[in-house]
Amino acid sequence: MEWTGARYADKPTVEVRTWIDAPPARVWAVVSDISSMPAMSEELQRVEWLDGADGPAVGARFVGHSRHEAFGEWSTTSHVIECEPERVLAWTVQDPADPSAIWRFRLRPENGGTELSEWMQLGPGRSGLSAAIDRMPEKEQKIVFVRLREFERSIATTLAHIKKRAEA
């Protein structure tokens, strides 16, 4: 029997949720401060707003500098595509018309606190993962599966940091 995991072209996604004992405004203050995200991530090393932006707004851009043991170091430009304070913050990585990834935080008031989810989609545009798939096309589904599991662990860690900061 052949394993039929997701392929990159399927635009696979991962999402992790947590409940935070803090109002959406306090959670938003942490989530929307993207310059603090490297302290909550093993992969993301540094972030800088571009074009004079100093916070999220639709159309704002930022550069993220990342590092991964298998992929080395790289930088990407992201474009904010959704920004509703205390509700949602989303951005595309690289070309907004053909992004290498889409990331989204959603906040929802729940039980006197906030349900926070972080979601991401791979592709459809090319990324560092595309080069690995090009080298080993027969392993595409495994490569995608492993990367999604890495993102799932990383997102869970980020959400735990956000929770700790927002509840402090």
Score class of each variant (00 low, 15 high):
His79Thr: 15
Gly52Leu: 11
Ala101Leu: 06
Gly64Asp: 05
Asp51Ser: 02
Pro96Trp: 06
Val27Gln: 01
Ala101Ser: 14
Lys163Thr: 07
Met120Phe: 01
Arg61Tyr: 07
Gly112Leu: 00
Ala97Met: 10
Pro85Arg: 04
His68Arg: 09
Glu152Pro: 00
Gln141Ile: 03
Ile155His: 05
Lys11Thr: 15
Ala90Asn: 09
Ala160Leu: 02
Asn111Asp: 15
Glu69Met: 08
Cys83Met: 00
Glu140Gln: 12
Ala97Thr: 12
Trp119Cys: 00
Val31Gln: 04
Ala6Tyr: 12
Glu42Gln: 11
Arg61Met: 10
Ser35Asp: 12
His68Gly: 06
Lys164Asn: 11
Arg17His: 15
Pro124Lys: 03
Arg149Gly: 06
Cys83His: 06
Arg46Met: 04
Gln45Trp: 05
Glu42Cys: 04
Gly5Asn: 12
Trp19Asn: 10
Phe105Gln: 11
Arg7Ala: 10
Met136His: 15
Asn111Met: 09
Ala9His: 13
Glu118Gln: 15
Ala70Trp: 09
Arg106Asp: 13
Arg165Leu: 15
Ser154Gln: 10
Pro96Leu: 04
Leu44Ser: 06
Ile34Arg: 12
Pro124His: 00
Gln94Asp: 15
Gly125Phe: 05
His68Lys: 14
Pro85Cys: 04
Ser78Asp: 14
Glu140Asn: 08
Thr13Ser: 14
Gly52Cys: 11
Asp95Gln: 03
Val80Cys: 09
Gly125Ile: 00
Glu152Cys: 07
Leu129His: 00
Ser127Tyr: 02
Ala39Trp: 01
Pro109Glu: 15
Val144Asn: 10
Lys139Thr: 10
Met120Ala: 07
Pro23Ala: 15
Leu116Trp: 01
Ala70Gly: 03
Asp95His: 09
Ala132Thr: 06
Ala168Val: 01
Ile34Asn: 06
Glu115Gln: 11
Gln45Arg: 15
Glu15Trp: 03
